[in-house]
Structure formats: structure tokens, C-alpha cells
């Protein structure tokens, strides 16, 4: 049997979706290591195939979401993540992880700011694929995932958002307005397709029983989130 690929999940003070994200990664065949940021050293990136930034409130997100996580990550590994990606490494950021990747400039320029409602929202959202991405290949054109965030509204300078929809960087869109995000952007990928960030939580829809409707079928054996992680596994 082939050796399982390795996933490294970075845990900051305030990261809180690490357990369920590990569960999802393990379910699709990753060997997963949760690494508290205090233990992060540059060589930690040498022996992994996937670096994961999971949901939560890194350092409380009292300043701008992901800001402190970015500063501390840079202090630990400098441009190590950029090098990891150029070596062919894969990176996934979910919710707060998406915010951190955006801060780290590993994803197309832009910001994730407070929802137009000014409130935290916890609900399920309809999503549609806008461009091909290895991270979404196992999913249908439209599907659903839960969202839970206060700062999930993507904004870019000038019409960056429109551009990302055109050129396929905006790989994932909401089917309706959820948080005021420009062009209803829900997830972005970089030009290599190996770095992907999204606000929705695929790890919360691993099992069919995760769905709010007990009669949900979706013609699938698992929840849609499972198929997203499965796609990540295949991409790696």
C-alpha cells in the first residue's frame, strides 16, 4: 500500500476547527499532523504535501482577521510558504484560514471584511463552481456547505473581483448573496491552482447526517464536504 500523503495543519492560539478538519483529512487518506504555531520551524514544510489553515479566530482576530497570524507565520518561516508552493506544494485555507492566506498574499489581492449585516452568520449556503479547480473536481456544479463567519465579505481594489470571476481565480461563488461579498465570491485559487481558500466549511458536511434536512440525498454517499477533501487528496 502506498504511503499516505502528509498534511500539516497549523494551529494558532484561537484556531478552533482543527479537530474536525483533521477528521476530514484523515477520512480521505491524509496522515495529518496538527502543529501548534509555537513549534513551527522552517524545515516543517520540507516533508509535507499539504499545508492547511483551518477555521477559528487566530489571536482573537481583534485587529483584522488573520493579521496577527500572518505576522507570526512570517516571523517563523519567512517566505517558506511561497517556496513550498513553488516547489509544487498544496495549501488549503478554510474560513479563518482563507483570511490568513489572503493576508499572506498567497491568494489574489483583496480583503475579507465584515459582512454587510455587521453580524456573525451561521447558516448553510448554496455554492456554484465558476472555474475548474483541482480542489473542486469531485463536486457537482452546484452544491451546499455551511458558513459561519463575521468577516467573510470579499472586496478587491477597483474591479478586482470582476476580474477574478473572469479569469477563474474566483473558483467558487455563492448562488445568492450571503454576506455582501463582491461578485458573491466564496472561494479563490492562485494561478497555480495549488493554493485554495474558501469561507464555507467543508469539514462540517462530511456525513450525510450533517445536513439540516434528514431527507437530504444529493445522490451522494457522503456530504459534499467529503468530496471536496477527496478532491484535495487526488490533487495532491
Amino acid at each position: 500500500m502506498a504511503k499516505r500523503p502528509h498534511a500539516l495543519l497549523l494551529k494558532y492560539p484561537g484556531t478552533n476547527c482543527d479537530a474536525e478538519t483533521s477528521r476530514a483529512l484523515e477520512a480521505v487518506g491524509f496522515e495529518t499532523q496538527v502543529l501548534p504555531i509555537a513549534l513551527l520551524e522552517p524545515h516543517a514544510l520540507d516533508n509535507t504535501q499539504l499545508v492547511v489553515f483551518s477555521g477559528g479566530f487566530s489571536y482573537g482576530d481583534y485587529v483584522m482577521s488573520g493579521r496577527f497570524a500572518k505576522l507570526n507565520t512570517l516571523a517563523k518561516v519567512g517566505d517558506g510558504l511561497q517556496q513550498f508552493v513553488s516547489r509544487g506544494g498544496h495549501v488549503l485555507g478554510i474560513c479563518n484560514g482563507f483570511q490568513i492566506l489572503t493576508q499572506l498574499h498567497l491568494l489574489p489581492e483583496g480583503s475579507l471584511i465584515h459582512n454587510t449585516s455587521g453580524r456573525f452568520i451561521c447558516r448553510w449556503a448554496g455554492l456554484k463552481k465558476n472555474a475548474s479547480s483541482p480542489y473542486l473536481q469531485g463536486l457537482p456544479d452546484e452544491f451546499e456547505l455551511p458558513v459561519a463567519h463575521a468577516e467573510g465579505r470579499f472586496v478587491g481594489i477597483d474591479d478586482a473581483a470582476g476580474e477574478y470571476v473572469q479569469n477563474g481565480r474566483a473558483a467558487l461563488l455563492y448562488t445568492s448573496d450571503v454576506n455582501g461579498s463582491s461578485q458573491q465570491i466564496a472561494g479563490l485559487q492562485d494561478e497555480t491552482g495549488r493554493v485554495f481558500g474558501l469561507m464555507p466549511h467543508p469539514e462540517r458536511f462530511l456525513f450525510k447526517k450533517h445536513h439540516y434536512d434528514p431527507d437530504w440525498n444529493g445522490d451522494a454517499d457522503h456530504g459534499w464536504g467529503y468530496y471536496m477533501f477527496k478532491s484535495v487528496r487526488e490533487a495532491v
Partner: peptide, 23 residues
């Protein structure tokens, strides 16, 4: 009020406070 609380973190909420065909 329910929507302001993250009621799904940890990924284990099998019966949610709001459900039905449209949740």
C-alpha cells in the same frame, strides 16, 4: 439570535437548532 452563534463548530451538531427543508 441563533444565527449569531456558531452552532456547528466541531462538526458534531447532528440535530441543529433550526432544520426542515429550508433549515
Amino acid at each position: 439570535i441563533i444565527r449569531e452563534y456558531d452552532h456547528e463548530v466541531q462538526g458534531n451538531t447532528f440535530l441543529k437548532p433550526l432544520a426542515g427543508a429550508t433549515g
